[in-house]
């Protein structure tokens, strides 16, 4: 009882919970689930974007995309490290991804079909992710909050880069403009789905808000995102594919149309266009890398042994 009181007191006073602190089991479990999902999303997210590295249209764009995908790998690393502070190893966390037990953001189960998709992912997908991540910089668990601060800085750079790709296309040839609008059409609704189910249907939300893991509800963040994008799209001279999108003077927010929740739940369940491909690609990389990891470990062991022998000698 005493420990629970200290924990609650810290939450109330906005003091971060640290790895060595006592925490309720369910709090620990929720964090492990959420942070590892987030880590997996970074890693799986490398695939749809990586898909265009070898085909990027200029050397400058190629280098920027490579650097971006590399950043995602770095984010995955910090987040796996954050889950380790909660007592689970990176190996077991990755095993959960490969076995299909753990989830990752459904957005990466959509395909990148044209170069404009790389711009749309930067603008919309990274944009939606940032909404969530800015909030998470204030999350109650210390290592997660600190990882988020670092990640947010890089993500906002990626988002600007994505928008700039689209801006260049929007000022280009007819074919480029069409490519730009088409990518926005395909990525808009899945991006809105990134904020998760409606508040009424979100099973974990209430508890996470109480624990100050989450600070804003799914619907609040989604509304904030729509309001920002509805303005930014004007700069591109493109359209958001929603006939019901309209400024509501009374609410001081944009009204927007219905999300296709049937599609949402299906992609979550594994029926998205790329769910199988993504998981197979991750599994293949892991399996193909098995002998490499074993070699590295064997060499490390031998080197250590050699060093010890030299010391004794």
């Amino acid at each position: 009882m005493h420990e629970e009181k200290i924990f609650q007191d810290k939450l109330d006073r906005e003091i971060k919970i640290e790895p060595q602190d006592w925490m309720p089991d369910a709090y620990r479990k929720t964090l492990i689930r959420q942070i590892s999902q987030h880590a997996h999303s970074e890693i799986v997210g490398m695939l749809p974007e990586g898909n265009w590295i070898t085909r990027a249209p200029s050397l400058k764009r190629k280098a920027a995309l490579l650097a971006k995908v590399q950043d995602e790998a770095g984010h995955g690393l910090y987040l796996y490290a954050a889950t380790e502070t909660l007592g689970v190893t990176r190996e077991s966390t990755i095993e959960d991804l490969n076995s299909g037990k753990a989830k990752y953001s459904s957005i990466f189960n959509y395909p990148t079909l044209t170069w404009a998709d790389i711009g749309a992912i930067g603008w919309l997908v990274d944009g939606a992710a940032i909404m969530n991540q800015v909030m998470l910089c204030r999350t109650s668990y210390g290592p997660y909050a600190r990882a988020m601060v670092r990640i947010c800085k890089e993500e906002s750079f990626h988002q600007r880069q994505g928008f700039e790709i689209l801006l260049t296309l929007s000022r280009g040839t007819v074919a480029q403009k069409e490519m730009c609008q088409d990518a926005i059409n395909r990525w808009w609704w899945p991006s809105l789905m990134m904020f998760g189910p409606k508040d009424d249907d979100s099973p974990h939300s209430k508890q996470s808000m109480d624990w100050k893991i989450k600070r804003k509800s799914n619907d609040e963040l989604r509304q904030q995102f729509v309001d920002i994008c509805a303005e930014q799209v004007k700069v591109l001279g493109m359209k958001i594919p929603d006939a019901e999108l309209k400024w509501n003077e009374k609410k001081q927010h944009y009204d927007f149309g219905q999300i296709d929740w049937e599609e949402f739940w299906n992609v979550v369940k594994g029926n998205g266009p790329c769910n199988r491909d993504r998981l197979e690609a991750r599994k293949k990389a892991h399996e193909d890398g098995d002998w490499v990891r074993k070699a590295a470990m064997a060499h490390a062991k031998k080197s250590k042994h050699k060093k010890q022998q030299t010391k004794v000698g």
Binding site: M46, T54, L66, V69, Q70, A73, A285, D288, V292
Partner: peptide, 19 residues
Amino acid sequence: NSEWCGHGPILEQDIALTN
């Protein structure tokens, strides 16, 4: 080398080769 990006055997080495 960039063909490896996202498919490396160890995350740290994926990053190194991308570098």
